[in-house]
Design a binder for these strands. Structure first.
Lengths: 343, 343
DNA sequence: TTGTATGCGTTATCAG
DNA sequence: CTGATAACGCATACAA
């Protein structure tokens, strides 16, 4: 309510020194500083960030774009971003990316562009070349999480390596009849993660010289999705695999639930491995490939904050590879019947 | 980049008419309007929201405060809020409420106060009287979700009625040995929902004249939490209950998983009912009490948007009761051994 | 219908 | 170290 002018008057100084005293940017005599702070707190003064932004050109606010809020990976990233941002003194304005191209365009050209944000963090959205160009003309640092985007700094796990790692773990245990339950290739997310995870799975199988037949089931990236897919996959004892590589932990958990329901013992009769290290995985003893989305969010904030602070050295257009690791629990073991091994 | 002045010059009009043409607020000749829009799109002009805010005093931005992002209820509410807000032309800046009092105070007195938001939506946070007072002196409409707050408009389900409804369902089926697995009363969330749900459970039991003994287990509001609690609760066949009222669906799902693991058949040997209607509930056939968090978020936005649009008629300080309903699936049935009924 | 002029609340420049 | 003063980019009251 009260303005800087009132604070200055009450402290008996000019607006300029009041501003300097409050922002702490320049040298002000201790006495003046003291009087100004006292006046400010008396009046309950708080800067108008809009006025400050108008003159500085900086908003102390970063925009986050994401297609989902209520999904584990995205929510986790968002939490990481939020924490890091508020610690760095920035606000976070949240934009959910609409699926429809027209709405999406409106987001970029109307909401994002009004000089409201100093930087942009995209999670799980593959910017189009024209969107990248828009961001560049805005001269705002941007970083992406979840996949590589030409022209901007991004970070993500290597999706092919993730399923490959999981698959090799199974193969090293002696499995050869392995099926991948992953995301629907038609309902791709922005970075083709479904396709990439399938590719990694098949590459690992091929590398091991394992012939591939009916090796893939598509389903929703959720527990019910994994449950349904596994229910049909495991129904026939004659044809069912000895191991499953799930596209994510939620699918894996659904598959384990289905197996239990069908009386199939995990891991002695069926091994299951997931990707994520979801908080629910430990309870199911799920062996999984660990990724820490929250830390990815924090790292992204580090990068944009540094880019905003420093001079105009624009963020390098690099694709950072987030390390992954295999978390071995009790959902994987050697297959029930001995199969011809390789060593 | 380009300013209104440039647009005006290019269109051959004054800044005033350019402004009027773009905002569409006042009458502008079709010809002028046409030229201005053309000039604006040629230049890729976009209003500076900070400059506009400075003069109008409105930011077209609402603040959302929530203690969690990555929990089903909160994320769901957030999605509802986000969608409604963007449709109404507002941005959403997200604040996660820190647990520590000092950080919390900083959030309110520093971040929230800088004339950045036109309104506030609190999700699952019980504002203190002084926080309510702060919001009132800011003269910003505010609405809360998740519990009643004296002095501001709030909405929530009736937590006592929710567990009471679930419990009565079980009682009507003939159960008398019922246990409530709910949240830890020590780790209360802001609105004492754990305590209120326990109260509703016990009230329903008392109303039915069922004597209560060891009738409550505290755990974490999560699948693993429900799993662990149920594992120990159900271990002894001699003492185990015939039915469980879970504090939320995730606990219920954990309990069902535990029961299956112990070879206890749901529902013939054990009935389980939850609260929420979580997307995973259908897969487990979980009978539950439905609440739609997303719709609560949308309703909250409706209210604040209306309050911002209209004159200074501040939001009524009412507590809106969100309707709930029982969703009967296959996790509940009559108890295994006949017990003395009442009718 | 249109143009002119003013002010929103700060920060930054430049003297002093 | 401090004080005037000029922007920042826009919306509006007022005059034409």
């Amino acid at each position: 309510m009260s303005s800087l002018a009132e604070v200055a008057r009450r402290a008996g100084v000019s607006k300029a020194t009041a501003s300097r005293a409050l922002s702490g940017a320049a040298h002000v005599s201790p006495a003046a500083k003291e009087r100004v702070s006292a006046a400010a707190s008396d009046l309950g003064y708080v800067v108008s960030s809009t006025a400050a932004s108008l003159v500085t050109g900086r908003t102390k606010n970063v925009g986050v774009i994401t297609p989902f809020i209520n999904r584990w990976f995205f929510a986790e990233v968002l939490e990481g971003i939020e924490g890091a941002l508020i610690q760095a003194g920035y606000d976070l304005t949240l934009f959910r990316l609409p699926a429809e191209p027209e709405q999406r365009s409106r987001l970029f050209h109307y909401f994002l562009v009004r000089k409201r944000v100093d930087a942009i963090v995209c999670v799980g959205v593959a910017l189009t070349p024209s969107e990248v160009e828009l961001i560049h003309t805005l001269r705002r640092p941007a970083v992406g999480i979840g996949g590589a985007i030409p022209g901007i700094t991004t970070m993500s796990i290597d999706d092919e390596q993730a399923t490959a790692l999981a698959t090799r773990h199974l193969i090293s245990l002696g499995h050869t009849r392995i099926v991948h339950i992953g995301g629907d290739l038609g309902e791709q997310m922005d970075f083709h993660v479904h396709a990439r995870r399938l590719t990694g799975f098949r590459a690992a199988m091929a590398d091991a010289g394992i012939p591939q037949g009916d090796d893939f089931r598509a389903t929703e990236f959720s527990v019910p999705g994994g449950y349904e897919a596994a229910m049909s996959l495991l129904a026939d004892p004659a044809t069912r695999p000895t191991a499953i590589v799930a596209g994510c932990d939620e699918i894996a958990i659904g598959a384990i639930t289905a197996a239990r329901q069908l009386g199939i013992v995990v891991p002695s009769e069926l091994s299951v491995v997931g990707i994520d290290d979801h908080p629910y995985s430990a309870m199911f003893g799920l062996t999984t490939v660990r990724q820490r989305p929250g830390e990815q969010g924090e790292l992204a904030v580090d990068l944009v904050v540094r880019a905003m602070g420093g001079p105009d050295e624009p963020l390098q257009s690099t694709a950072i590879d987030i390390p992954i690791g295999l978390e071995v629990r009790s959902s994987t073991t050697a297959p029930p019947v001995s199969v011809p091994g390789r060593g």
